[in-house]
Design a protein around this nucleic acid. Structure first.
Lengths: 164, 164
DNA sequence: TTTAATTTTTAGACTAATCTAACAAATTCT
DNA sequence: AGAATTTGTTAGATTAGTCTAAAAATTAAA
């Protein structure tokens, strides 16, 4: 059985191809080259690797397509990226630029298990009624700004008893 | 001016050297080799790179030492690792094994800015009186377990008004 | 102090990912 | 259709990090 494991770089190619297909419906070598910022000869080499592993279909001078497996991988990575980005900006308050950069690197480092917990965490954080921040998150924002823990309610709740 | 930028791999070497020095007071090529899991010829090559960049002192057949800059970098990475590990296990509830693996990879991907916010977040989470989990975190644990949002207090607090 | 064992270093090969530069195919424009 | 331009491919070089295997230095043992 061929080795299907992917490096971060190869994952980036899949991700880029998926993103391009959403915009353009058809993906050429040049698009990928521009999107990732490498020469098209590098894209070519990457495509050879990726089609060898069964993640893309590509015939000489033709368009580039993801196989179902390729789409799955690309989707997973994109989901990781999204969850990380949301966490970094919503919870930690990192600005979009840096949050994005960090998410791009971290998306390759995070396990599926961590991803799924993180995604649930973000549901928990965001899913609260009316799209408002939960109170504890406001508390954290306050802590960041002032270095001081919020007084009052949160404080008391923090030292309470059991589960609902 | 020489290039002082480090790859993830080189950062790992610095981290390992720092950790070994804490245990043994003196660090040899072989220790590093075992700790990282590469052959000593690889360690040798890495040390050449690292001393070229000014992060380690190493003379033929001698012990390996970090320069002050090397210690600083190692310390930074270790701090990132610690913050990530704490977050993954305390907040997301990932088991130590996977949390550790993930932290080892993420520590190279996270910016200083994200690190410092994450560290503050963990202070905020952990620093609450008596080392008890804050109520919202229990709420999240409950959500993870049951898929249901906790009723009662948290719910109400989530839809409240302003800052403390 | 010689010998043996361990450790370190060197030399050379390999893989992944990139680049440049030359060449080939496809497209576009008169 | 034929020329010009764009796009894609190939070949060969480069860099980082690893490996194996052999040689050199150090340390330990007899």
């Amino acid at each position: 059985m061929r080795d299907r494991k992917l490096s971060s770089n190869m994952e980036d190619y899949l991700e880029a191809i998926a993103a391009l297909k959403k915009e353009n419906d058809v993906v050429r070598v040049r698009d990928i080259s521009q999107s990732i910022g490498v020469k098209s000869s590098s894209v070519n080499a990457a495509l050879k690797t990726l089609s060898g592993k069964g993640y893309v279909d590509h015939e000489r001078y033709g368009y580039v397509k993801l196989t179902p497996d390729g789409e799955e991988v690309a989707g997973n990575i994109q989901s990781k990226h999204d969850a990380l980005l949301k966490f970094l900006s919503t919870v930690l308050g990192i600005n979009k630029g840096i949050a994005s950069e960090d998410a791009c690197k971290m998306e390759h480092a995070i396990s599926s298990q961590t991803f799924s917990k993180l995604a649930k965490f973000m549901q928990f954080v965001e899913g609260d009624l009316n799209g408002k921040k939960p109170e504890w998150l406001k508390g954290f924002n306050y802590y960041i700004k002032t270095g001081k823990r919020p007084k009052c309610k949160m404080r008391e709740l923090a030292t309470e008893k059991k589960e609902p």
